[in-house]
Design a binder for these strands. Structure first.
Length: 432
RNA sequence: UCCCGAGUAGCUCAGCUGGUAGAGCAGCCGGCUGUUAACCGGCGGGUCGCAGGUUCGAGUCCUGCCUCGGGAGCCA
């Protein structure tokens, strides 16, 4: 295989003769001169062919190029103000590697239904490439953040027995002679066990929810990162969250500027994302929502409308803490100052993107936890190992979960979470 | 599951109080030596989501169904 260059490597090579490969985006011709926009995932390149300067076979090949034909071009790198990107390739030779006819996604408008039916091909578009690169940066920023702070990655099981909150919202599958297994909707309970072993841990993997959600904020399969820290209380948990979110955003602003520009993302709101984030108790939030015209009542969970209304009041993510125990999960620690509430918090992203984090201090009192399990009629046997964590050296600890796709959608400024993952899984999408 | 909305050419859509199907783009053919979603000329392209009903006549009106999109609930 001959040595070749990726498009991103070409700008410093002006004057040199190189080989490059890629896929055709568009072609244009003015009779005896031809232009090809080539992309290879690292960048885009304009290739110029002059009929009199290339072999007949190469000129003939130019005529057979169609959208998404893959081709190899040999030519001279040349700086030219007329070329998009400032550098173009004057072709000496062109070879078709893979023909393409009638590519379904044309450079015109398409509806989302059509695009998602062709998701495997839509991924090649500029916007989708930019989103994929931002997502990659978000994931790397997450891993680096925890690595630098000496957290240990613990991979939690995807197949689990009956555990978690409500089994009706889990995907079920046969599991040999052990009955039904469920796809995990959280790694949190396992990561709590690991926190007692390793101190600061996190899990990062796919999560599954069988809810029949039909909104721009929901997927049935999504990626979630869940840190859990021994000896952190709810307040320390919130400080970790704001530092975490701020570092992810800063990293994208620093290293994915061109992708955000490609997505036409206004980065002003992102630049404001710095600690400290505003904090408001659930109770104060209810009062505030009422003054803003909402019919919100104490005791109800915040709905999408309430979250958006509240988040609009701030220029950065807002933390809402200490919700009523009745609307929250059994494992959240009771608030000693007001037992009607628990020591938890959500982080609401600005610009209407909603909840990107849900977290809490965990109930570390054996009897109180057992009481909650019984009150919610959860299978006590299934939670015996979880109760053990409170039996053998119980410890103050807290953690949270951040939804990767919601975070990516917010940072990219895209309207629908489905574009934030390569192959989204929703109520009606299992293919491709 | 509930509430809205949409299904017409490969794609995006138009089609008026009912009169027998239209545009742009894509594709194909031809022209052009600097194009930027190039441009100019020409050509082909339809089970109007499905089934039934009203009517002399239905893309258009009525009923049912199907598919998809948005929202609610649930949550990250």
């Amino acid at each position: 295989m001959p040595d070749f260059h990726r498009i991103e490597e070409l700008p410093p090579l002006a004057g040199q003769t190189v080989i490059t490969r890629g896929w055709v985006m568009t072609t244009r011709s003015s009779g005896k001169i031809g232009f090809v926009m080539l992309r290879d995932g690292t960048g885009t390149l304009q290739v110029v062919l002059s009929k009199k300067d290339v072999p007949e076979a190469a000129w003939d090949g130019f005529g057979r190029l169609a959208q998404e034909t893959s081709a190899e071009v040999t030519g001279t790198v040349r700086a030219d103000a007329r070329a998009p990107g400032g550098v173009e390739l004057t072709a000496a030779e062109l070879r078709i590697l893979g023909p393409s006819a009638d590519f379904p996604i044309t450079p015109k408008e398409h509806g989302t239904a059509f695009l998602f039916e062709h998701r495997h091909l839509w991924l090649r578009s500029r916007r989708q490439v930019a989103i994929a690169r931002v997502r990659h940066e978000v994931v790397q920023a997450i891993r680096d953040f925890f690595y630098e702070r000496h957290f240990v990655l613990v991979d939690t099981p995807i197949l689990t027995g009956a555990i978690g909150e409500a089994a009706g919202h889990l995907f079920a599958t046969e599991y040999f002679d052990l009955g039904t297994a469920y796809l995990a909707q959280t790694g949190q309970l396992y990561v709590e066990a690991a926190a007692a072993a390793l101190g600061k841990v996190y899990c990062f993997g796919p999560t599954f929810r069988a809810e029949k959600s039909k909104t721009r904020r929901h997927l049935t399969e999504f990626w979630m990162v869940e840190p859990e820290v021994a000896w952190n209380d709810s307040d320390a948990n919130m400080r970790l969250q704001e530092e975490f979110v701020s570092s992810i955003v800063a990293r994208c602003l620093d290293r994915r500027e061109s992708e955000l520009a490609e997505l036409e993302r206004d980065v002003k709101p992102l630049e404001a994302v710095r600690p400290p984030f505003p904090r408001i108790s659930y109770t104060d939030a209810v009062t505030k929502l009422k003054t803003l015209g909402s019919d919100m009542a104490w005791g109800r969970d915040l709905g999408g409308d309430e979250e958006t209304l509240l988040a609009k009041q701030y220029d950065r993510p807002v933390m809402v803490f200490n919700y009523p125990a009745a609307v929250k999960a059994f494992y959240m620690k009771e608030n000693p100052a007001d037992p009607r509430t628990v020591l938890n918090n959500d982080v609401l992203a600005p610009e209407g993107y909603g909840e990107i984090i849900g977290g809490s201090q965990r109930e570390d009192d054996y009897d109180k936890l057992l009481g909650r399990i019984r009150a919610e009629k959860l299978p006590e046997d299934a939670y015996s190992w979880y109760l053990d964590l409170r039996k053998y050296g119980t410890f103050v600890h807290a953690g949270f979960g951040l939804g990767v796709e919601r975070t990516v959608a917010w940072i990219c400024g895209i309207p629908h979470i489905r574009e934030a993952i390569a192959f989204p899984r929703t109520l009606y999408k299992l293919w491709p």
